[in-house]
C-alpha cells in the first residue's frame, strides 16, 4: 500500500459516496448511508485501515485527506437528509389534511329552567344587600296564608286570591309567598333581611297571562328604622340590575291587607320606553311588583313589637320578571316543558 493508491481510494470513496447520497430518496436511506459510510465498520474506516502500512511521515498527510473526505460526506448527508426530511413532512402534512369546514362534533347542550334561574338572579341581587334565602311550605294553613297576614275570614280582600283548598282541614295551597314572612319572623329576631322564592297556586284557569301554578319571590326586611325610603332605594337598584341602569322607575300607591302603606312598583315600558304602547296598556309603565310597609298586625302575628320595629315586604312574580327579560309572551310555556323552548336558555 502506498500513499498514492490510498489517496486514490479515498478519492473514489468520496466520489462514490457523494453519488449515492445524491441518489437517496428517503430519509431512512440517508440514515443507512451514514452508517455504511461513516460508521465504526463503515467504508471510510475500512479504507483507513491501510494507513498502518505507510511510513510514519506520510501518515499525517493521509489523515488530513481522510478528514476532508469525512467532512465532505457528512456535509452531503446533512444537506440531502434535510432536503429529504422536509419533503417527507410536507407529504405527510398534505396527506393528513382534512376538510376544516365540517361542523364540530356536538356536545350535548343542557340548560337550566328560566324561572328557577330568574329566581336565582333575583336572590343574587338582593343577596348583595344582605338578604338571605328562606323557604316555607306550599301546603299552608289558612291561618298563615291569610289570617296572620291581616286577611280575616270574610274579608273582601280575599277576592284578590282565588284559592285552592285541600282535603286537610284549614289547609290550602299557598296563594302567595307572603305567609313565609310570618314563618321567618317566628324563626328570627330583627334585624331581618329575608328572601322567599317558591311555587304558589291559584284557582285560575290557565291562559297566556294566567297560571294556576306560578313562582313568586317575597322579600322582607325588619328593623327599627327600616322605611319606605329603604324599600324604594332597594327596588330601584333591583330594577336597574334586572332591566338596565337607564330604566326609569315609578313608585305609586297599591293595596295589600298586609302592608300599610302599600306600594306598586313600575318600570318604564321595556317595549316603548315610556311612549305608551299596547304592551303597557298605553300607560308607558309596567308593574313589576307589589310592596309596602309590613302591617303592624302582621308584625304582631310574627311576634314583633310594631311600636319598636317596622319593616317592608315585597312580592313579585318570577314569570313576570322572566317575561320582561326574555321576551316571553305566554305563561304556559314555562310549565309545558317543550324542549324547543327550554333549550334556548343557558
Amino acid at each position: 500500500m502506498d500513499l498514492d493508491s490510498l489517496r486514490a481510494d479515498l478519492e473514489n470513496l468520496r466520489r462514490g459516496a457523494l453519488e449515492r447520497i445524491a441518489a437517496a430518496s428517503e430519509p431512512a436511506q440517508i440514515d443507512q448511508l451514514s452508517v455504511d459510510l461513516l460508521g465504526k465498520k463503515g467504508e471510510l474506516t475500512l479504507v483507513l485501515r491501510g494507513i498502518g502500512g505507510l511510513p510514519a511521515e506520510q501518515r499525517p498527510k493521509v489523515g488530513a485527506i481522510a478528514n476532508e473526505v469525512r467532512q465532505a460526506i457528512e456535509g452531503a448527508l446533512a444537506e440531502r437528509g434535510g432536503e429529504l426530511r422536509t419533503g417527507a413532512l410536507g407529504r405527510r402534512l398534505q396527506a393528513e389534511s382534512v376538510d376544516v369546514t365540517t361542523p364540530g362534533r356536538p356536545i350535548p347542550r343542557g340548560s337550566r329552567h328560566p324561572i328557577i334561574e330568574t329566581m336565582a338572579e333575583i336572590a343574587e341581587v338582593f343577596g348583595q344587600f344582605g338578604f338571605v334565602v328562606y323557604e316555607s311550605p306550599e301546603v299552608e294553613d289558612d291561618l298563615t296564608n291569610f289570617q296572620m297576614l291581616n286577611i280575616p275570614p270574610d274579608h273582601p280582600a280575599r277576592d284578590l286570591w282565588d284559592t285552592m283548598y285541600v282535603d286537610i282541614p284549614e289547609h290550602l295551597l299557598r296563594t302567595h309567598t307572603s305567609p313565609g314572612q310570618i314563618r321567618v319572623m317566628h324563626a328570627e329576631r330583627p334585624p331581618i333581611r329575608a328572601l322567599l322564592p317558591g311555587r304558589c297556586f291559584r284557582y285560575e284557569a290557565t291562559d297566556a297571562s294566567h297560571a294556576s301554578e306560578f313562582f313568586q319571590v317575597e322579600g322582607l326586611m325588619v328593623d327599627e328604622g327600616t322605611s319606605l325610603a329603604d324599600l324604594r332605594g332597594l327596588l330601584d337598584q333591583f330594577a336597574h340590575a334586572m332591566f338596565g341602569a337607564d330604566k326609569r322607575t315609578r313608585f305609586r300607591p297599591g293595596y295589600y291587607p298586609f302592608t300599610e302603606p302599600s306600594v306598586a312598583f313600575d318600570v318604564e315600558c321595556l317595549i316603548c320606553g315610556g311612549r305608551r304602547c299596547p304592551a303597557c296598556s298605553h300607560t308607558g309603565w309596567m308593574t313589576i311588583l307589589g310592596a309596602g310597609m309590613v302591617h303592624p298586625v302582621v308584625l304582631q302575628y310574627g311576634g314583633i313589637d310594631p311600636e319598636r320595629y317596622q319593616g317592608f315586604a315585597f312580592g313579585m312574580g318570577a314569570e313576570r320578571i322572566a317575561n320582561l327579560r326574555h321576551g316571553v309572551g305566554d305563561l304556559r310555556l314555562y310549565l309545558e316543558n317543550d324542549l324547543r323552548f327550554l333549550e334556548q336558555f343557558p
Binding site: A123, P191, G225, D230, R232, G233, L234, D236, Q237, P261
Partner: peptide, 29 residues
C-alpha cells in the same frame, strides 16, 4: 302615613340604601 304619602306623591319618597345592621350570616338552602 299612607294618606300623607299618597297625597304628597309616592314619587317624592326618597330612595336610600339601607344602612342598618346586617343580619347574621345564614347559608342559602
Amino acid at each position: 302615613a299612607e294618606e300623607v304619602t299618597r297625597v304628597r306623591g309616592y314619587e317624592l319618597v326618597p330612595g336610600v340604601t339601607p344602612h342598618e345592621e346586617m343580619p347574621h350570616f345564614r347559608p342559602t338552602p
